[in-house]
């Protein structure tokens, strides 16, 4: 039997909220599909669109921007800037022809482990539904 395909999702987490939320999900043993690869940055404002583009070109089936809720940024307004960059990136990727689901933004607080796990489950299902990224290298398949 062929093994079920697990998408590969690059997850950018800010140190203070979403990474902590992801830790919280772990502490709470909130089971998630093994789809994400986390990259810790201090603030969502550090998530360079260049990293996102690289992840997508490397074959990432989706990239998630995560950080503190608007207003809760540990660094005052880094997440606001992240949001702006995300919006611009979103337009570019849409124009390039990438599906909407492949770039997402989600705010997760340090105490939202359950929400975090739920979100990862949801995203993984969404990506499974649309299949592997068309940017994956052929030899990867």
């Amino acid at each position: 039997m062929e093994e079920e395909w697990t998408p590969k999702i690059t997850l950018f987490c800010c140190n203070w909220c979403s990474y902590a939320g992801s830790d919280d999900a772990g502490v709470g043993r909130k089971q998630q599909p093994p789809s994400t690869r986390t990259i810790r940055v201090m603030c969502s404002g550090r998530t360079d669109p260049g990293f996102v583009l690289t992840a997508l070109m490397e074959g990432s089936d989706a990239v998630l921007f995560t950080g503190c809720h608007i207003g809760d940024c540990h660094y005052i307004s880094g997440n606001y800037k992240a949001k702006k960059r995300f919006e611009m990136l979103k337009e570019i990727l849409d124009e390039l022809g990438l599906e909407d689901e492949r770039l997402q933004l989600q705010w997760i607080s340090a105490s939202e482990g359950s929400e975090f796990a739920e979100y990862i489950r949801k995203v993984t299902e969404e990506i499974k539904a649309i299949g592997p990224s068309p940017l994956r290298q052929e030899w990867m398949k």
């Binding site: 669109p49 260049g50 583009l53 070109m57 490397e58 990136l89 570019i92 290298q137």
Partner: peptide
């Protein structure tokens, strides 16, 4: 900086970053 000719990406990061940086 973000571009490495060895990457063999389907679209080069060089252009993608430029497309983004110049989009506004």
């Amino acid at each position: 900086d973000f571009y490495d000719p060895m990457d063999s990406h389907k679209i080069s990061i060089y252009h993608l970053v430029r497309l983004l940086h110049l989009s506004d």
